[in-house]
Simulated scan of single mutants.
Amino acid sequence: MKEKIKHLLVSRFVLTILFFVFLNMIIIALTYHQTSTWIGHTRLPDRTYTTHLVQYRNDLDIYVATYHLDIDKVNSKHYQYVISQTTKNANVLKNDNMGIPVANHRYFAIDDVCTLAFRTPSKASINNVSMSCLY
Rank of each mutant, 00 (worst) to 15 (best):
L9K: 12
N128P: 04
V92A: 07
G40F: 06
N97M: 10
K4A: 07
A124Y: 12
S11T: 15
V64P: 01
K6E: 10
I126E: 10
F22V: 09
T66Y: 05
F108V: 15
T48W: 05
I83D: 05
Y63H: 12
T87Q: 04
V14K: 02
R57M: 02
S36C: 03
K123I: 11
Y67H: 12
I39M: 01
N89P: 01
Y79A: 10
Y135S: 08
D59Q: 11
S84E: 12
D96Q: 15
V102Q: 14
H52G: 01
I126R: 00
E3N: 13
N24P: 00
K73I: 03
T120N: 15
N127Q: 09
K77Y: 12
T31N: 11
P121G: 06
D61P: 00
K73F: 11
Q85C: 00
M98T: 11
V10H: 02
H41W: 12
N24G: 06
V21M: 14
I26K: 08
N58F: 09
S76M: 07
M25V: 07
T51R: 06
K4R: 09
S125F: 05
T31I: 01
Y107I: 15
K88L: 10
V64G: 00
R47T: 05
K73H: 13
N104I: 13
T16E: 04
N95L: 10
T66K: 13
S132C: 01
N89C: 04
F19P: 02
S76R: 14
I71M: 02
D70E: 13
G40W: 05
Y67N: 09
N89Q: 05
V14C: 06
R43Y: 07
Y63N: 12
I17E: 01
N104H: 15
I126T: 08
H78S: 08
V21K: 13
Q80S: 09
A65Q: 10
S130N: 04
R106K: 15
D112H: 14
A117N: 08
M131R: 07
I83P: 04
Y79T: 13
F20D: 02
P121N: 00
I26T: 11
F118W: 13
S125R: 07
V64F: 04
V64T: 13
T42W: 13
A103T: 08
I39H: 03
K73W: 09
M131H: 02
T31L: 04
T42D: 10
L8E: 12
Y49R: 03
L69K: 13
M25K: 11
S130I: 03
V113W: 04
T120S: 14
N128I: 08
V129N: 04
A103I: 10
V74F: 02
A29W: 08
R119M: 14
Y56P: 00
L134H: 00
D59Y: 09
F13E: 15
A29P: 01
A117V: 13
L116S: 09
P101N: 13
V64W: 03
Y81H: 05
I62V: 15
V14R: 03
A29R: 07
L15K: 14
I27G: 01
T120R: 13
T87M: 02
A65L: 09
F22W: 13
F108H: 15
K6R: 10
R43V: 15
M131W: 01
I110Y: 10
A103Q: 11
T35M: 06
R119Q: 11
D96M: 11
V74E: 12
T16M: 09
A65G: 01
V14F: 05
L69I: 08
L53C: 03
